[in-house]
Computed example of a mutant assay.
Amino acid sequence: MLDLVIDARPASLSPGFGVRRILPFRLRRMLGPFIFMDHAGPVNLPPEQLPTLDVLPHPHIGLSTVSYLFGGQVTHRDSLGVEQIIRPGEVNWMTAGSGIAHSERFEDPTALAGGALEMIQTWVALPESDEESVPAFTNYQPHELPIFTDNGVWMRLIAGDAFGLKNGVKTHSPLFYLHVVLQPGARFGLPQGHRERGAYIARGSVEVSGQTYSAGQLLVFKPGIDPVIVAREASTLMLLGGEPLGERFIWWNFVSSRRDRIEQAKADWQAGRIALPPTDNAEFVPLPQDRSRPASSPAPEPLS
């Protein structure tokens, strides 16, 4: 029933900002079009240490970043001139396409109150026909995202289609992405009609086929099966997957179907040809000094 279980590994977005990295994994580079997944927080720091969490301006190509918060807030600024405070329950979808730079700043001290800052960020690889698309950023408010409730089950559709739910979040390939909260004993399944499907346990623990799995694990299911997920306690899941896009190369924050395109992105960032956010251009993350070829696993640590 399960194809693979991926345990989150420690990684860092900035000198003071540790995360749990789920994708990419050496045995599983992608899940549908999802090529990257980080779980940050809950973060509990004194307010004076807030700047240590900031992720300075950095570039992306060939992907969409999807930021989703459970708690706290973060300020997004990008080279399109967008400045957006990201809050819990919203979907913030940034399509890098041919190239974009953005920063993530933690500027409100209340964002850390009670260890409330917690977020999931994923990258969705773009189909080859959209890899050089015009960069874009869209914020979707919670009221635009359908919610379904049943006995012991609450879920919000973040993007794509699942269980008959759809929303207006613009995607570039068939996928699904859901935030699911289960009460103890609740039973849940996976959406059908998608070739690759997984469930990341953000909180709590669940049982599948008599085996218990806990927070920080991504369960990757075999195609064509219809599993029953049973909550052993109050649990939060992120369900994700879709249709595979084919091989993608990833180096730092660059994703492409072509090795040479990543080499070009390196040169573009080094030469300043990818613009910085106009309201956050005093500092940036330099190109890592790494001579490795782009591969199916990241060379230097990716940033969000």
Results as ranks from 00 to 15, higher is better:
Leu182Phe: 12
Ser103Tyr: 00
Val134Asn: 13
His143Pro: 03
Leu27Val: 00
Val55Thr: 03
Gly41Val: 06
Leu80Gly: 02
Leu45Asn: 03
Ala96Pro: 05
Glu128Thr: 13
Ala265Val: 14
Leu53Ala: 04
Thr171Phe: 06
Phe176Tyr: 14
Gln289Gly: 06
Ser14Phe: 12
Leu218Ala: 11
Pro57His: 06
Glu132Pro: 00
Ala101Tyr: 02
Ser296Lys: 12
Ser12His: 09
Arg248Thr: 07
Thr52Ser: 13
Ile35Val: 14
Pro223Cys: 15
Gly224Cys: 00
Pro278Gly: 04
Pro174Ser: 03
His194Pro: 14
Arg26Gly: 03
Ala265Trp: 14
Gly32His: 11
Ala8His: 13
Met94Tyr: 05
Ser297Glu: 04
Gln73Ala: 00
Ala8Asn: 11
Leu13Lys: 06
Glu301Gln: 11
His194Asp: 13
Leu2Asn: 14
Leu27Ser: 06
Gly272Pro: 06
Gly71Pro: 09
Ala231Ser: 07
Leu27Cys: 00
Arg87Asp: 01
Ala199Leu: 14
Ala202Gly: 01
Val153His: 10
Pro59Asp: 08
Arg26Glu: 15
Asp150Ile: 07
Ser14Met: 07
Gly160Ala: 10
Ile120Pro: 03
Ser133Glu: 10
Val181Asn: 08
Arg77Tyr: 01
Arg156Cys: 08
Leu117Tyr: 01
Pro191Met: 11
Pro10Asn: 10
Phe176Trp: 10
Thr138His: 12
Val82His: 02
Glu107Trp: 01
Glu128Trp: 12
Arg20His: 12
Pro15Thr: 01
Gln211Trp: 13
Ser292Ala: 04
Gly152Trp: 14
Pro288Trp: 13
Ala11Arg: 05
Ala116Phe: 12
Thr75Ser: 00
Pro15Glu: 01
Pro302Trp: 05
Asp54Leu: 00
Glu263Ser: 02
Leu4Asn: 06
Gly72Asn: 01
Gln192Ala: 12
Leu219Tyr: 05
Ile100Pro: 05
Ile250Met: 14
Leu50Val: 09
Leu117Cys: 03
Pro146Gln: 08
Val74Ile: 14
Ile100Thr: 11
Ala162Gln: 13
Glu207Gln: 05
Glu207Ser: 05
Thr212Gln: 15
Asp268Phe: 05
Arg259Met: 04
Val91Pro: 01
Ala202Trp: 02
Val220Ala: 15
Ser297Gln: 08
Gly41Trp: 08
Ala199Phe: 15
Ile229Lys: 09
Glu243Thr: 12
Pro88Cys: 06
Pro294Lys: 08
Gly114Thr: 13
Leu45Gln: 03
His172Gln: 08
Thr149Trp: 12
Val285Ala: 04
Ala11Val: 02
Pro174Cys: 10
Ile120Thr: 05
Ala186Val: 12
Gln264Thr: 11
Pro42Tyr: 09
Pro184Leu: 11
Ile250Asn: 12
Ser129Asn: 08
Ser64Thr: 08
Ile147Lys: 03
Val206Phe: 02
Lys170Pro: 04
Asp268Leu: 04
Gly97Thr: 12
Gln141Leu: 00
Leu31Cys: 08
Arg105Ile: 00
Asp38Arg: 12
Val82Leu: 02
Ala159Cys: 11
Pro227Lys: 15
Arg29Pro: 07
Thr279Lys: 06
Phe25Asp: 15
Phe70Gln: 07
Lys222Ala: 15
Leu145Arg: 02
Leu276Ser: 10
Asp260Asn: 10
Val91Thr: 02
Val228His: 04
Glu118Phe: 00
Ile61Trp: 04
Val19Thr: 06
Ala101Lys: 06
Ala8Cys: 13
His60Phe: 04
Ala275Ser: 14
Leu56Met: 03
